[in-house]
Design a protein around this nucleic acid. Structure first.
Length: 431
DNA sequence: GCGCATGATTTGAA
DNA sequence: TTCAAATCATGCGC
């Protein structure tokens, strides 16, 4: 403690280095010698250094005495200048920190996911992107999209609420610290720049908390997204109507169950599924039918009978076997019913023992044979000999040589290729 | 829980 | 790109 006065000199913090102090001392100590001034400063410093050893009352009294000391303002200014210089030189380099790359990544991701940034359209773009990444977007996916959006919006809301809380807390804390420092700056040397630095430190601390918030938000989005994608991957059975529509098409085009793109689209629309789901369905159906025809025989007969009945009723109304209930097969339904009629008739009789129905179907089918022959001769799609000779053939003809595997399989109900009517959308012959 | 049905995915060929 | 074939994974009835 005895060195304090020497310290001031040795650091060159004398009156010459500090005009304020010099001025003050010149003004306030006119007529006193240098020794007296030194003694004053030494006393003050001594009191400051020992203030922590005193009781509260003593310290308060001492503090008051110090505050009222004639040398106090001068000493205060000197200490402020010293502190400012020291702290600036130490912290100067730290203040020009580059932006945290991790924080930037998090910000970018939150922006891309629609959590941060403008709310308009946020999330739907991400949902669409996620959907696009996994294939087509079907009608049944819209519910999942809205679900995804809802959950994303929830995350967004939580994120913004927490962010606001953090900002509010940060502001409150900053204000509090600033007030405290300003208050304390009356009794100890705290420069405005030091307060600024303190504010910066507080902001950095809160930024790190914000980064944690951003990180957990990102994680939540990633989990949601993975769940969303998993949910899309999840298998869900098609509804009964969709399956019936697909089966109807399949069995009415059994000789060549390869729907064209247009047919797939139409089927997809009718079944409220995606085109790729239609493709999947037909792929699975073909392979499974082929593998186990016996198992599917009954189903095949049922659908063929149904189609035949539909076509019959249509033909009874004077239509040219252009059933609207049969997907994508203007003309093909009628022709296919005809082509399958032999097997169909026998199967229905043998399986159900329903002679009335069977007979009815058989009779109707027979009537269609003539109608169809007429249609065939008019369209010229198939030769008479083909239509006549193979109409009841159990083996049928291979109309899809490029996919020869299909007709090679024992397809008891597939007899012939359906006749393409004008405006037909399926591509049996093109395949 | 088990077995079957079935939609989705992957792989390889054309 | 489309398809067949194999496989995976889930739904569903028992």
């Amino acid at each position: 403690m005895d060195e304090q006065p020497r310290l001031m000199h040795s650091h060159g913090v004398g009156m010459a280095g500090h005009p304020g102090l010099a001025q003050h001392m010149q003004d306030g100590t006119a007529g006193t010698d240098g020794e007296g001034r030194k003694q004053d400063i030494g006393d003050i410093l001594q009191q400051i250094m020992t203030i922590t050893d005193q009781s509260l009352d003593e310290a308060q009294a001492r503090k008051h005495a110090l505050n009222c000391h004639r040398m106090k303002p001068a000493l205060f200014n000197v200490l402020c200048e010293i502190k400012e210089k020291t702290v600036l030189s130490i912290r100067g380099a730290q203040e020009e920190e580059p932006p945290d790359p991790q924080l930037m990544r998090l910000d970018n991701m939150l922006l891309a996911e629609g959590v941060a940034g403008p709310e308009k359209g946020g999330g739907s773009a991400a949902a669409a992107a996620a959907a696009a990444a996994t294939g087509g977007i079907g009608a049944d996916n819209s519910a999942e999209h809205s679900d995804y959006r809802a959950k994303l919006s929830q995350i967004r809301q939580i994120y913004h609420t927490e962010l606001e809380k953090y900002e509010q807390a940060c502001n409150e804390f900053t204000t509090h610290v600033m007030n405290l420092l300003r208050e304390q700056s009356r009794t100890r040397p705290i420069s405005p720049k030091e307060i600024e630095r303190m504010v910066g430190i507080i902001h950095r601390k809160f930024s790190s908390i914000q980064m944690q918030l951003k990180q957990s938000t990102c994680e939540a989005v990633m989990i949601l997204r993975s769940r969303f994608l998993d949910a899309r991957r999840k298998r869900r059975n098609f509804n009964k109507q969709a399956t019936e529509i697909l089966n109807e098409y399949f069995y009415s085009h059994l000789s060549n169950p390869y729907p064209s793109e247009e047919a797939k689209e139409e089927l997809a629309k009718k079944c409220a599924i995606t085109v790729s789901q239609v493709s999947n369905w037909f792929g699975n159906k073909r392979i499974r039918y082929k593998k186990n025809i016996g198992k599917f025989q009954e189903e095949a007969n049922m659908y063929a009978a149904r189609t035949a009945v539909n076509a019959t009723s249509v033909s009874a109304h004077g239509s040219q076997a252009n059933s609207p209930s049969t997907p994508n097969s203007a003309g093909s339904a009628g022709s296919f019913n005809m082509s399958n009629s032999g097997d169909l008739f026998m199967s229905v009789q043998s399986l159900n023992g329903d002679s009335y129905q069977g007979g009815q179907v058989g009779a109707n089918i027979q009537s269609q044979v003539d109608t169809l022959r007429h249609v065939i001769s008019q369209t010229g799609g198939y030769s008479d000999s083909l239509a006549a000779s193979q109409m009841y053939s159990p083996q049928g003809i291979n109309v899809r040589p490029t996919n020869g595997g299909w007709q090679d399989a024992p397809t008891p109900s597939s007899v012939t290729s359906p006749t393409e009517g004008p405006g037909s959308v399926h591509s049996d012959t093109s395949n």
